Computed example of a mutant assay.
Amino acid sequence: MKAELREQIYTVIAAIPPGRVTTYGRIAAMTEATTPRLVARALRELPADHDLPWFRVITASRRLADHAGAWEQRERLTAEGVVFDARGRVPSDRLWP
């Protein structure tokens, strides 16, 4: 992945406000020539010492992706006031932008 594309993705993620979420697809639409899968790849490649709010990125179905950090992601979102319905979805009014 080109460094410029990665930086665009990280810039969008950094802008997600606390208590809100966005999807891989929405991030892809805000960047040049990327896809939701490339957004996911950029997140997997984050350095250990990063401070990006990665946990605010969810799937198009408004659920958490199935990954090793899903439990931590849910905890962080809950701490910011994000709720989940009985099916594990985030309400659409929490989507940004």
Rank of each mutant, 00 (worst) to 15 (best):
V90A: 04
H50Y: 08
L38W: 10
P97T: 10
Q73V: 04
R76M: 14
T34E: 04
P36C: 03
A68N: 11
P36H: 07
I9D: 01
R20Q: 00
W54A: 11
I58Q: 02
K2P: 14
A3W: 04
T35V: 06
R20A: 00
I13A: 13
R89E: 06
R74G: 11
K2F: 11
E72D: 13
A3S: 14
A29Q: 09
E72W: 11
V82I: 13
G19Y: 07
W71N: 12
R76I: 07
R20Y: 02
A70D: 07
A70K: 13
I16G: 05
R44Q: 14
A29M: 06
A86C: 01
A28R: 02
G19P: 09
A42H: 07
R89M: 03
L5E: 09
W96Y: 01
H67N: 09
W96G: 00
V12K: 04
F84I: 00
K2D: 13
Y24M: 04
I58G: 03
H67C: 09
P17G: 01
P47W: 00
G25A: 12
R41D: 13
D85R: 03
V83D: 07
R62K: 13
A33H: 15
F55Q: 07
A14H: 12
S92L: 13
A14V: 10
T31A: 14
T31E: 06
A33G: 15
I16P: 06
R44V: 10
T78W: 08
S92N: 10
G81R: 09
Q8S: 15
T78C: 01
H50G: 07
G19T: 01
Y10A: 05
A15W: 06
R20G: 00
L5D: 08
P18N: 10
R6I: 15
V57H: 02
D49F: 07
T22R: 00
V12R: 05
F84A: 00
T22L: 08
A65V: 08
P17H: 01
W71L: 13
T11R: 15
V90F: 10
H67S: 11
L64K: 02
R41P: 09
R94L: 03
M1F: 12
I16S: 01
T35H: 08
P97E: 02
V21K: 00
A28L: 05
W54N: 05
P91K: 00
V57P: 11
W96P: 01
R41A: 12
F55D: 05
D49E: 12
I27K: 02
I16C: 02
A65F: 03
L5Y: 11
D85M: 01
